[in-house]
């Protein structure tokens, strides 16, 4: 059906105004976050130059290194240099490895980002059908089974799942390798290496997602418009599919956004279990080695990712629910 121009124009304008407002608040959030991150990392005790050269270093050697690392200028200027560098893609040089941070982060991102997306896809693929079945058969066998399983999924930590998966699929069955990452030169092998970690990450997330979606669906099923749909001749299942799911999606989107942000950085333990060179391990190492430039840059990158994900979730709300498009 063609969109009526009289309706569409104010609608698109409202949607655009909404997006612009979200973008402005996004930029402000990023600026505030960068200042906070810089301040916190600067306050942390320990001089990186001294740390790198060891305790027996000569003061003039330390001073020379400080100058080389750009640590000798006033703090506000270092903040501006750091900020300007990040905008132009120059994340500085790692104190420890003496390589550009941008390159290090990019390498790790090629592991962490696919892993997060993989886990998110899996958790959605598990959670949605489980929630639909549970909501449709509320209080009966399938619902009880799903609720029991999700209880377990929420309660058991993901590294425990990871160990079980390694035991079963890597050691006993030998279908997957127990750890390591072969790189993306062979995409299939790379995917295979990410499969067990992704499952381990996805299971607890799927449990939470399924519970949220189930209760959201049950709320929606009690709505008047579901009764209207039944009066039109839809079966319960059709009413659930055609009218329930989209209306139940708002709280689910919120959870999905939070989970994606967590998956990007929160996979430290899983990366450790599977020996994956991901962002989580990078930041962990950088902290223990007082590699401030790397810490600052990775944390800033993660903040950026979280804010972008939230922005995407905000836009998704408006796409799902036409009523929100007005709330510019």
């Amino acid at each position: 059906m063609p969109l009526d121009p009289g309706v569409a124009r104010p609608y698109r304008a409202a949607m655009l105004a909404y997006a612009v407002k979200r973008l402005i608040s996004l930029a402000i959030s990023l600026l505030v976050a960068s200042a906070v991150i810089f301040a916190v990392v600067e306050i942390a005790p320990g001089d990186p130059a001294r740390f790198m050269l060891g305790i027996n270093a000569q003061p003039d050697t330390v001073a020379a290194l400080r100058a080389e690392l750009g640590l000798d200028v006033p703090k506000w200027q270092r903040y501006l240099n750091w900020l300007g560098g990040m905008i132009t893609g120059d994340f500085g040089t790692s104190y420890t490895y003496r390589t550009p941070v941008a390159q290090m982060v990019a390498d790790r991102l090629w592991v962490s980002l696919p892993l997060a997306l993989y886990a998110l896809t899996l958790s959605t693929a598990i959670a949605f059908p489980a929630a639909l079945i549970a909501a449709a058969r509320r209080g009966r066998g399938p619902d009880v089974a799903v609720m029991g399983a999700t209880q377990l999924g929420v309660a058991v930590p993901n590294f425990w799942f990871a160990m079980l998966l390694v035991l079963l699929f890597a050691i006993n069955l030998g279908w997957f390798s127990a750890g390591g990452f072969p790189g993306w030169s062979d995409p299939l092998a790379a995917l295979k290496a990410l499969t067990l970690p992704a499952i381990a990450l996805a299971l607890p997330q799927a449990a939470i997602l399924a519970r949220v979606m189930r209760s959201s669906l049950i709320d929606v099923l009690g709505e008047d418009f579901i009764r209207t749909a039944r009066a039109k001749g839809l079966s319960m299942r059709q009413a659930l599919w055609r009218h329930g799911v989209r209306n139940a999606l708002i709280p689910v989107l919120t959870i999905l956004g939070l989970q994606f942000a967590f998956l990007l950085a929160g996979a430290i333990i899983i990366e450790q279990v599977f020996y994956l060179p991901g962002l989580g391990r990078l930041i962990f190492q950088a902290i223990t080695q007082r590699d401030l430039v790397v810490v600052e840059s990775v944390v800033m990158l993660l903040v950026f990712a979280v804010i972008m994900v939230n922005f995407a979730v905000d836009l998704a709300y408006a796409a799902v629910d036409p009523r929100l498009r007005r709330r510019a």
Partner: peptide, 9 residues
């Protein structure tokens, strides 16, 4: 107010 699906035309 509630008998119609709010997210469908």
């Amino acid at each position: 107010m509630t008998a119609l699906n709010p997210v469908q035309r």
